[in-house]
Design a protein around this nucleic acid. Structure first.
Ligand SMILES: [Mn+2]
Ligand SMILES: [Mn+2]
Ligand SMILES: [Zn+2]
Ligand SMILES: [Zn+2]
Lengths: 136, 136
DNA sequence: CTATAAATAGAAATAATTTCTGTTTATCCT
DNA sequence: AGGATAAACAGAAATTATTTCTATTTATAG
């Protein structure tokens, strides 16, 4: 849970600030993907002072740390969600197109090849879209 | 090739305009993913009159028609590329992170399951990133 | 407790995308 | 070929998500 993420931050010499705690807490509570602005709306309840640029910066930091992932949805906004996996194992995510809930997709089916069609393969990204139990 | 795309448009009662031809020709010639603005720069050479909103509209039309796909790259711009497959077979794409070249990735390894973790699966998207032969 | 670099707020800038309106044009039908 | 029609278009303007900048605050190591 949350403490693991904070430990990960501390390990890499990033500061544990109240805002950062609050962002991670929010993701824990909401259990779905969120936009920077939605997060900001929530934070403003607790911190009457709070800037959107700080949200953006922290979200990108969390992605670099493997704590959050970016989610693709309709529309022109960004979405982020908790990765939920602390082992660092490669895996993918399934997203509810209705409510934005995100869960780990247990395994990766992509073959472990290093090249195809003359390309040297570096990475792959994948997202599964569906409808979660409670939205069905 | 190009004629197939035009046929597809005509079938669905979309007009074959010089701009549309020019956009598809450009993709054929460039053989990589392009941003709306890049396309616009090229079109302006031939059509001194030419508006960016028209480019945006056409690109989204082509995506709906399965002629183009959207490509994720670094930065905040959109990229589009030819799908290159007229059979309509489900498949994915590999993108050169250096030059933006895009090729069909022959097969899809994602299992044909209809549900997981309580989700009803609707779709999945995937992109393979690598370095193409000429960029290595 | 202090020094210090990291994090922040707030305002402003940036730039991609969309919307709107009036005009043009591809296509269908005589 | 000529005319009617809806689709496509240009151009300007609006929108809005994201980034940059600067001065101030704050978490943390020593
Ligand atoms: Mn995960
Ligand atoms: Mn393809
Ligand atoms: Zn749901
Ligand atoms: Zn390349």
């Amino acid at each position: 849970m949350n403490a693991d993420y904070l430990k990960k931050l501390k390990q890499d010499h990033f500061k544990i600030t109240p805002k950062r705690r609050a962002i991670l807490d929010l993701f824990d509570r909401e259990d779905k993907c969120l936009t920077p602005e939605t997060i900001w709306e929530h934070l403003k309840k607790t911190f009457k002072q709070s800037g959107l640029p700080g949200i953006y910066r922290n979200l990108e930091l969390f992605v670099k740390q493997g704590i959050l992932i970016r989610i693709d949805r309709e529309g022109r906004k960004r979405y982020y969600a908790l990765c939920h996996d602390h082992s660092g194992h490669h895996h993918h995510h399934i997203v509810c197109v209705e409510c934005g809930r995100v869960d780990d997709f247990p395994v990766c089916h992509f073959p472990d090849i290093k090249s195809t069609k003359g390309y040297k393969i570096l990475s792959h990204s994948m997202q599964i879209n569906g409808i979660c139990k409670s939205c069905q």
